[in-house]
Design a protein around this nucleic acid. Structure first.
Lengths: 161, 161
DNA sequence: GACAATTTACTCGGATACTCTCTGTCCGAGTTCTGACGG
DNA sequence: CCGTCAGAACTCGGACAGAGAGTATCCGAGTAAATTGTC
């Protein structure tokens, strides 16, 4: 039970993109340089965000990635799901089917109480993540660390020089 | 983000053990035969439960595994943690440390708001799992599927013949 | 018949291969900008 | 001086290797029961 490393990268990158002027695209190379990450691999993760409709990408010079929606419309769950996939953490292989009294016709993902309990926990996790948007996170950071937006914009600006 | 297959096996096996007379031990071979699981690998998972103090093991003929505590004292989180380990799902590698204004002295697992948000979700998941004991699960199954305890005991009994 | 020693069968436990996902890297297709060239 | 066109630089996107955890298996140490032999 561990999340991919790309989740952390994706969350920080989305937050950084949220501080840029709308429409401004940043290449994977520059986003990677921000935290000294491997550029090609970060690019791979960002592609997943594009496929999920969270980011939009542009090719060629001055191209790169930008948010595809307003930060208010992007939840943390959206980002996590884009990287990790939509499957829930607990894999019910329906082993009850092999047990005594097991039937091939029953969907034990619904009938098995263990499966239900694990799904409840999974939903609690997702609910927590879905309850916070990128905009709220951005605002919280600006309250606690007021210099961050300026620093971020400045760092990207000097990358363009 | 996916749990090991052993989690499902461990939960079902613990539940089966809870239906046996107290003190009665069942070998990994028989527990595996219950759901047609690979015996040696299930044994490996059960060892983890022993190390975690959830099960007690006995060697030799008539030996096997039994619950080390009352079902009321075993939560679903205990079982999951025994198999998956205690680490939380989100791995904060503190990449902020490499960013502009990052300091080697700051613990970004505490300071980073992204890390905090992910930890909140993790705690919600754990709280849900810690809130249900093996005894409650057992009672719920007995309410919904009254035949299960008898069937389980019967199946194990005929294994001993 | 009762007891003790030996053999046997069975159990867990850890050490050992195999597989798949995650991680990391590379190169090609496409696009935009730049610069040269001609009118 | 302005417009057009070719070249170059830069970008994403998917295809290609390497590492680590999860999966599966096997064999040995230890234990309890069963058997045999003796008193």
């Amino acid at each position: 039970m561990k999340l991919s490393e790309g989740v952390e990268w994706a969350l920080h990158s989305c937050l950084n993109l949220a501080w840029l002027p709308p429409g401004r695209a940043v290449s994977a190379t520059r986003l990677a340089a921000f935290y000294e990450l491997p550029a090609a691999y970060l690019n791979k993760q960002l592609q997943a965000l594009v496929r999920a409709g969270l980011l939009a990408s542009t090719s060629g010079p001055r191209g790169g990635f930008r948010l595809a929606r307003a930060p208010e419309e992007i939840t943390l769950l959206d980002v996590v799901t884009a990287i990790e996939g939509p499957e829930e953490a607990f894999r019910c292989e329906q082993i009850l089917r092999q047990g005594p009294g097991g039937s091939p016709d029953v969907d034990y993902r619904q009938a098995c109480l263990i499966s239900q309990a694990m799904r409840r926990a999974d939903l609690a996790w997702r609910r927590e993540l879905a309850g916070q948007t990128l905009a709220e996170l951005k605002a919280a950071v600006e309250r606690r660390y007021p210099d961050t937006p300026g620093n971020t914009r400045g760092r990207f600006a000097e990358m363009f020089s």
